[in-house]
Write a protein that binds this DNA or RNA. Structure first.
Length: 403
DNA sequence: AAAACGGGGGA
DNA sequence: TCCCCAGTTTT
């Protein structure tokens, strides 16, 4: 069986009716002439530099264009070439990414830069299959680089494109199912413009961000409405078909701000694997019982019996003393709450404050440090940490002493 | 195939 | 406030 037959089989399997060649060509012309007028001016579109396109595509994963632009410009100043990226200090790299989220993206970015230095003489490979082997580059990004930097007719299927294609062709495949991506790739391979594949892919992305949006969708405004099967058939409200994901699981913590006599706070570096790897937070102690004891509907209760708060403080005290070899005085009640929602977890943190009267620095775990607030800027803080610190500052903004 | 992995914008 | 956005790696 030829490749052509295989592609057609996928399309048939999902009930996709491919357009005749003339319609495909008319669609390309309509889409590209719209793009030539309406395309967004973006810093990574200034040229076809594969490095710039690559970095921008990684930043744009799960992140909006407006958010990415300042990060991208700063990143290019700090690490102008693949060689600079490969040689960069990891802390500097992470700092440059701070606030963008999904921090494994930047770690993989550097791993890939090192791969490119070692295996490809510092030049991004042109073969899509080779691009695909680089760390952090999956089918979407490989297609994006191949088409935009090297003008190869490769599909780059992201959520936007699945949404657009499902509306254009009335495709019923659930776009939430990873396995269904191949349908959209097969469709895109059929219709992609062979002369301007990079522009074609980018035109679809611009269409997805401006007109073919997830919500407030008005197909009558689309430059390609004449090709839009779901618009013609008035079925467009059905597309894309997308199953729901389950919501974030709640997790409860005590987050403890510990201040020593020098005015420094105890920071702890998270493990090098897992959530928020290698980032710094105030000590966090998981407390499943807080859901009942301290919170109602995710908010701190107004009143909590003294017997309960006393018991919690005594347990926290014991744990902190054992972990950090300090002697301390904790506030009786949390001074605030901080919440942070991840894709799969919802953290609710009761923020405590404590004064440390005696510390044994020789027994402080290697992952911990006493740091003055002026020096916080040198540490990479994830969202929950920033919220804990803001909660503390808000509480004590107008007071000189602690309690 | 499903879960892990952040943060921000909009209704 | 809740809901939504979505690509790659790991399990």
């Amino acid at each position: 069986m030829t490749n052509k037959d295989k592609k057609m089989e996928v399309l048939e399997l999902f009930g996709v009716e491919m357009w005749p060649q003339e319609k495909i060509e008319a669609f390309r012309a309509a889409l590209l002439s719209w793009y030539d007028i309406e395309k967004r001016d973006l810093p990574w579109r200034e040229n076809h530099d594969p490095y710039r396109i690559w970095v921008s595509e990684i930043m744009l994963q799960q992140t909006r264009v407006e958010t990415v632009i300042p990060y991208f410009l700063r990143f290019m100043e700090l690490f102008p070439t693949i060689a600079d990226l490969a040689a960069a200090d990891e802390d500097m790299l992470l700092k440059a990414w701070e606030g963008l989220g999904y921090y494994s993206r930047v770690r993989n970015l550097q791993k890939a830069a090192i791969q490119i230095m070692e295996d490809y003489g510092g030049e991004m490979p042109k073969d899509p299959a080779e691009i695909r082997t680089l760390k952090g580059i999956g089918p979407y990004t490989a297609g994006a680089i191949a088409s935009m930097a090297f003008q190869l007719p490769e599909p780059a299927v992201d959520g936007n494109i699945m949404r657009i294609l499902s509306r254009l062709f009335e495709i019923d495949a659930d776009i939430a199912k990873p396995g269904n991506r191949k349908v959209f790739e097969a469709v895109l391979r059929e219709i992609i413009d062979p002369y301007r594949p990079g522009d074609f892919n980018q035109a679809l992305m611009d269409l997805g961000s401006s007109i073919c949006t997830p919500k407030n969708y008005h197909p009558e405004n689309s430059p390609v409405k004449a090709f839009n099967q779901s618009y013609i058939n008035e079925t467009w409200e059905k597309y894309p078909v997308k199953s729901k994901k389950k919501k974030a699981q709640p997790v409860f913590y005590a987050g403890v701000l510990l201040r020593n006599e020098k005015g420094e706070f105890l920071l702890e570096k998270r493990p090098e694997k897992g959530l928020l790897a290698n980032m710094w937070t105030f000590p966090l102690i998981e407390r499943p019982d807080f859901e009942q004891q301290l919170f109602s509907n995710g908010k701190l209760k107004g009143t909590v019996p003294a017997a309960i708060t006393d018991n919690i403080v005594s347990e926290l005290d014991k744990k902190l003393t054992a972990n950090y070899h300090i002697s301390l005085v904790l506030m009786k009640r949390p001074l605030a709450e901080a919440t942070h929602i991840f894709t799969h977890l919802k953290w609710t943190i009761a923020v405590y404050f404590g004064r440390v009267e005696k510390e044994n620095s020789s027994e402080l775990p290697a992952s911990c440090k006493w740091v003055a607030p002026e020096d916080f800027q040198h540490y990479v803080f994830p969202g929950p940490q920033i919220k804990m610190w803001e909660a503390y500052q808000k509480k004590f903004k107008h007071k000189s002493s602690s309690f």
